[in-house]
Amino acid sequence: MTDDGAAVVAAVEAVAERIEDERSYLTELDSAIGDADHGGNMARGWAAAADAARDLDEPDAQTVCKTVGKTLMAEVGGASGPLFGGSLVFASAELDGGVTPESAVAFAETYLEKVEDRGDARVGDQTVVDALTPAVHTFKKSIETDDRPPLEALAKAVDAAERGVAFTVPIRAKKGRASYLGWRSVGHQDPGATSVLYILEELLAVAADRLDAEIPDVDATSPTIPDEGEEAADATAPDPEDD
């Protein structure tokens, strides 16, 4: 197995465990605005995905992602199957040459694009897109514009996703089952966006673990402030190696 492949398998196992831990909370979020099946469907899907990933013989990262995507597509059902799984199948093509900062950005962008297209959703619709978009944009900027180390870029993406999840609470759903509730959807945290955050948090934890590094503390920085904050951002987001 390539190192990249092994890392992705470890990440999938971590996600499966995390989603299982959060299963009832996700279902609770979904019962307020949907049909109360998000936690169960996701837990079942990720458990099957982790099994499928473990069964692969010496896979590379692309193969693991594609297999996990296909498994989620077949097992999760509803809208989450194509959103979480289908998008992964398509985005996995970007990892053709292994996982590099550049291919990771391309992967994230394709994933976001597929989710947006499939759900016909944009930021502000109270969906997974609200967590995914700031995470992907922050990751891309951190790598391409700010030239940050990948782990720090991922930490910033997680921070951005967290803000995105919080953003789903005060807005009104325009897509998904919650949209039929109209104004009654206001005040509820989107379960799908919450799952996105859990997945990203586990990716970060596994990445840090494999690099044998601490998770960078980026909590105090705003993920969306443009470039002139460069120095200030540096000051508040120290390189973990400096500690």
Partner: peptide
Amino acid sequence: YEGDVMNFETAIEL
């Protein structure tokens, strides 16, 4: 229905 539309569209793209 969203589930039908998304699953079918994913299958179509594949």
